[in-house]
């Protein structure tokens, strides 16, 4: 094996396809500018090193490594994932070696790979998030921070993602200690995701990442036991794409903030659906498990899909959904003898 820091080409690596020069793929998420809108989602790409035999990381719009916390966390008791119908239920529990190990062992490789690195952070309190952001501010090679205030598998994270006041507080706290662009990754497990997205914007987020996993559960009825060691987990994969699209749509219509769409993206059609609905970029998640070269394949397919819409850039596509005006319900009228449905 090569030393861990080396970038190794591999026969398995997808053949780079030059993007069509006619269609620039760059996108902006607030102050964060990405070379293209195909990112990979936190928790589904390891720390990048694991994937370097399958994907040329330098091609990606952005790499979000697995979420880091202030201290090492062992993670949850197995089983940690269960496949469900067109989906994957997980409760990993933010298994990670902590920020010190990340900075020493993981980040240098990622930075050398050349893709924008968006570091995902999580903590049990606002103070944890602020401390992490403070440590990462000024570290060379970090393009932005993604605040994981939505992990369903650790108790505090989801609280900050479900309470607008707590959400705004976390974002403001991080904003106060770093000039790095901030993405707030939100949970769909709320009554109004618009309210939370607005709080993130008010706190100073550059963009919101929509969505983290949907809470779910799987059961072995014969043994009368839950399948996940943590009982409840988060559902990802194609099964949740409609939920993610709905969240992107609702936030796009109500809050003026760039959106990163994530949830069940497997095909270039899925990507385009998110762009048209209002996402400026997308993150590939569970597809990385099912097909390690998925992100590279989707990037290869993007120019042709844009050309199909006659687009000259991502701006011609993002948020161009034609939303029909929903007519108010007609007032009740007295029964008419001429109606075939009259009773």
């Amino acid at each position: 094996m090569p030393p861990p820091e080396s970038v190794v080409p591999s026969p398995a690596m997808a053949t780079p396809q030059p993007a069509s020069p006619a269609i620039p793929l760059t996108v902006s998420l607030g102050r964060l500018r990405l070379p293209n809108p195909i990112m990979v989602a936190s928790g589904t790409f390891g720390y990048g090193r694991e994937m370097s035999g399958f994907v040329d990381l330098a091609r990606l719009g952005g790499v979000v490594p697995k979420t880091i916390t202030p201290l090492p966390r062992p993670g949850n008791t197995p089983w940690r994932t269960v496949e469900t119908a067109a989906g994957l239920l997980n409760s990993i529990g933010l298994d990670n070696d902590g920020i010190d190990s990340f900075l020493a062992r993981q980040l240098p490789f990622l930075v050398r790979c050349g893709a924008p690195v968006i570091v995902s952070i999580a903590g049990g309190s606002q103070a944890d998030f602020v401390a992490l952001a403070s440590r990462l501010d000024g570290v060379p090679g970090i393009a932005a921070l993604e605040l994981n205030i939505s992990c369903p598998n650790v108790s505090h994270g989801i609280d900050m993602g479900t309470d607008p006041v707590a959400c705004r507080g976390v974002v403001e706290g991080v904003r106060s200690v770093t000039a790095l662009p901030i993405l707030a990754k939100l949970t769909p497990n709320v009554t109004s995701i618009v309210e939370i997205a607005r709080a993130a914007k008010d706190g100073g987020a550059d963009a919101v990442t929509l969505i983290n996993t949907c809470q779910g559960m799987a059961v072995d009825w014969r043994r009368r036991r839950p399948l996940l060691g943590n009982v409840i987990g988060g559902l990802s994969g194609p099964a949740i794409k409609p939920i993610a699209l709905r969240c992107v749509h609702q936030v796009r219509q109500a809050v003026d903030i760039p959106i990163v769409g994530v949830g069940g993206i497997m095909t270039i059609d899925d990507c385009m659906e998110f762009f048209v609905t209002g996402a400026s970029a997308v993150q590939i998640g569970t597809a990385n498990f099912a097909e390690p070269i998925a992100s590279a394949r989707l990037l290869d397919g993007l120019p042709a899909a844009l050309a199909e819409l006659g687009a000259t850039g991502m701006a011609d596509v993002i948020g161009t959904l034609a939303v029909p005006q929903r007519a108010p319900c007609p007032p009740a009228t007295p029964p008419s003898g001429s109606s075939p449905h009259a009773t």
Partner: peptide
């Protein structure tokens, strides 16, 4: 024989 989702170290299932 741990259950795996990815087999390549990115999902942290098979611990």
């Amino acid at each position: 024989e741990a259950p795996m989702a990815c087999g390549i170290g990115i999902c942290f299932t098979c611990v």
